[in-house]
Amino acid sequence: MNLLSATSLKKTYKDYTAVRGVDFSLTSGKCIALIGPNGAGKTTILRILAGLLKPTEGKIRFSGQPANADLRKFIGYLPQYPVFPSWMTAKEFLIFSGELAYLSKKEAEERAEKLVEEVGIKDAWNKPIGGYSGGMKQRLGIAQAIIHSPKLLLLDEPVSSLDPIGRREVLTLLEKLKEEMTILFSTHILNDAEEVCDDLLLLHKGEIIEAGSILELRKKYQTSVIELEFQDNPEQYLEKLRALPSGTSSYLDRNTIKIPAADISKVRYEVLKAATEENWPLVEFHLNRASLEEMFMKAVKK
């Protein structure tokens, strides 16, 4: 079931177009990653969904709501660089946020107490936010975004600014939140997306170039790469590999020769045959499945 669908969503500024008429829908209960390089329009899309920016054109329909309704009470949002009133404590800010989202004072207090524990800032929750580290602010940011138990949680680069430990903790937290709400988060780190998400939206220059579940996309872009490393200068072997019927697109990446292969068994046979016959000084023969990154690069080039 679609929780939200956007049709021909467009955002233009005076001199440039940030989002060029994209269509997408978010399936209820899934975790969706919005992936794209810097400047692809990820933040703009999230801000439009959060109601902070008005789309130049296009419609957003949330399940059970009229088109382009004010969706703020169903949505939790964490900006890329959340800024808090530094004089408030985390507790005060969470209760304040909760009350603004129509929780009663008591509900907001209970929810705040539960959330600070969940995101791991309980020790400091009575201290002014001004003294918080970046990681703590990010956690507080997540807590304030889910204080009113939104149906859709929008996170703008939630882990990019965190250290490895903080990153791991936030990803684990997202894994848990997935059970309660639909999550859309943007990232340019593909591993993070791979780890927690079910679906992907690939964004490039303001357009969605690919959308679907990770499994589907993996299948679609599945071409594997065979990597070869040699004891001596690999360049001489590159020529020989290119002469093989299935190795014509071989290329050199630093000291490794890479051979993209549609039919693995055929390439493997030819390569290993040549290697044995001519006694190549092979150090490594490695079969590499296409990573999300390569998939993305391919989709971009298409």
């Binding site: 902070l52 703020r72 009470k73 949002y77 959340p82 009133p85 603004l100 989202a101 129509y102 304030q144």
Partner: peptide, 12 residues
Amino acid sequence: SGIAELILVKPV
């Protein structure tokens, strides 16, 4: 500063 972003994204 961006504080308004956090406040106004709530149904205020």
